[in-house]
């Protein structure tokens, strides 16, 4: 067994280019439905707390990933938080350089045990610090559609 010949001329190499066009609908389910509806209609951040272990999830969830118990009810949290980490991203999805680097942060959200990932706005990268207090910036109510892009980003508070 084993291959006894190999292609050893580059101009003899062939390939076929293919694509996989796939589209999806990602349903929100109970927890995320409430979360995004509250962002859209009231500009509020809804969290939910597990009665078993006390962990507060943001966005709100319908069950606890640690205890696996059902979570009922939601609580509005301020939507403010503290920068846990941040990064300046220089590449586009196709690995070409970004014209404007993107400033992204992971934020410890007040009143919850979760972090939130989003853009940092209204601040230059060299002024950002771990531990900086931030607040959310939402789109105008008429432009909100009930998804993550309703949040423009987080800005220094």
């Amino acid at each position: 067994m084993g291959l006894t010949e190999r292609i050893n001329k580059t101009d003899k190499l062939s390939y076929y280019e293919g694509q996989i066009p796939i589209e999806y609908v990602y349903t929100y389910g109970l927890g995320l439905e409430k979360f995004f509806r509250a962002i859209k209609d009231q500009g509020k951040f809804l969290a939910s707390t597990c009665k078993e272990c006390g962990v507060t999830y943001l966005p709100a969830r319908s069950f606890c990933e640690r205890c696996l118990v059902k979570i009922e009810g939601t609580t509005a949290v301020p939507g403010t938080g503290t920068v846990y980490s941040y990064t300046t991203v220089h590449l586009n999805m196709d690995e070409s350089p970004k014209k404007e680097p993107a400033l992204v942060a992971l934020i410890d959200m007040d009143g919850t045990d979760c972090r939130f990932l989003h853009y940092l706005t209204g601040v230059k990268a060299d002024k950002v610090k771990v531990g900086m207090k931030v607040k959310p910036a939402l789109k105008a109510k008429k432009d909100r559609k009930g998804h993550i892009e309703d949040i423009v980003g987080f800005q220094p508070s």
Binding site: Y26, Y28, L32, P59, V89, L91, N92, M93, E95, A102, V104, L117, H118, Y119, H147, I148, E149
Partner: peptide
Amino acid sequence: VLNRPLDIT
């Protein structure tokens, strides 16, 4: 739903 729409690598 939460992360991909940000369109960041």
